[in-house]
Design a protein around this nucleic acid. Structure first.
Lengths: 179, 179
DNA sequence: GTTGGCATGTAACCGGTTACATGATTTT
DNA sequence: AAAATCATGTAACCGGTTACATGCCAAC
């Protein structure tokens, strides 16, 4: 379900696009929130077309098909946003490692936490770079209202990464005390 | 892969248990980090047995089988903890909603954020209750070192929930400014 | 003319969810 | 005697990942 919504959302926010375009946008903009490769996107666009939620607006060179969101698609998107209660299923390998770390002796545990911390730092850097790029883009079109599409999710990711960073530092300190 | 590890971890930390027991522990202790139902656990235990990572220690009434972790299983667990780089694939329906919220008009957006905030509050309350229960259990066995198994992951969850809560409040304020 | 990026698709596989199915023991 | 809980399993389905497969067009 969520994949359809993500596709409808991208079409609604950025206008008509091909499957190829959408796959790229997945990588660059929605990636920190939802992932999908082209092998998932193409069939899903076909289904969305069959269901009347998107339509092929035009065909370009190299078999390029440009999809637009239909009014029905737009309605579906809004309905989901306002009515769907998101599933809370959380699956994090990092958190699982954190869960199990006390099984190791403290030295090894600290090493694992150090690795997790580095990953979080990397993620945080990526997200902050994305935000900087977004801010720069907003600054280039003055007068116009800044495009907030995706900005809230970015902010959420940054805050949660920072929380994870502080956690890793404190957990390491706690483990070292036990050494 | 992670399911095997979670099972090995539970067996390592809490001693021998049946598939039924493990399914319960999933609900009560690992749930905020990884989920699995009995229909997934039973076949996986069979595979783990075939691979020599766990063994049936005893059989009880009602066909109850009690599994223990083997030395090989323990080695596998430690190896994974220390060597496996966790996948960073993050999939959050809430974050996807947050991403798309700017597509709605501000009033509706605020309503969506308010709902997300309530869910986060609920989750935070659950995690804090878990931690309180854990602390109480530690207090009941004085002198003994507190059982830190799962504690770090719990702490991580609580911090990230708090970060999400602050985010929701700030995002709502931001959206209301735009009304 | 060859390399690289554009562009679309299919197929095999794997992990996870829901539903189906069965039976033993304990509690009321 | 009936209901609840213990206890184990299987099967169908669905979403996602990896790998396979093909061809067009532009730049070098």
């Amino acid at each position: 379900m969520s994949l359809r919504i993500a596709l409808l959302g991208l079409l609604a926010a950025s206008g008509p696009a091909s499957g190829y375009d959408l796959a790229k946008k997945f990588e660059t903009s929605v990636a920190h929130v939802w992932q999908a490769g082209h092998s998932q996107i193409y069939p899903e666009l076909a289904k969305l077309t069959a269901d009347g939620l998107v339509a092929v607006e035009a065909e370009g060179p190299r078999g390029r098909k440009i999809y637009t969101i239909t009014p029905e698609g737009d309605a579906e998107l809004r309905r989901w946003l306002m009515e769907h209660t998101p599933s809370t299923t959380l699956r994090s390998e990092s958190a699982l490692q954190a869960f199990l770390v006390p099984l190791l002796d403290p030295r090894d545990g600290v090493a694992v936490l150090r690795r997790i911390k580095k990953e979080v730092e990397g993620r945080l850097a990526e997200l902050e770079a994305l935000r900087a790029a977004k801010n720069a883009a907003d600054a280039r079109s003055p007068g116009e209202p800044p495009n907030r599409f995706g900005a809230y999710a970015l902010d959420l990711g940054i805050r949660q990464s920072r929380a994870a960073l502080e956690w890793a530092e404190d957990a390491m300190a706690d483990l070292e005390r036990a050494t």
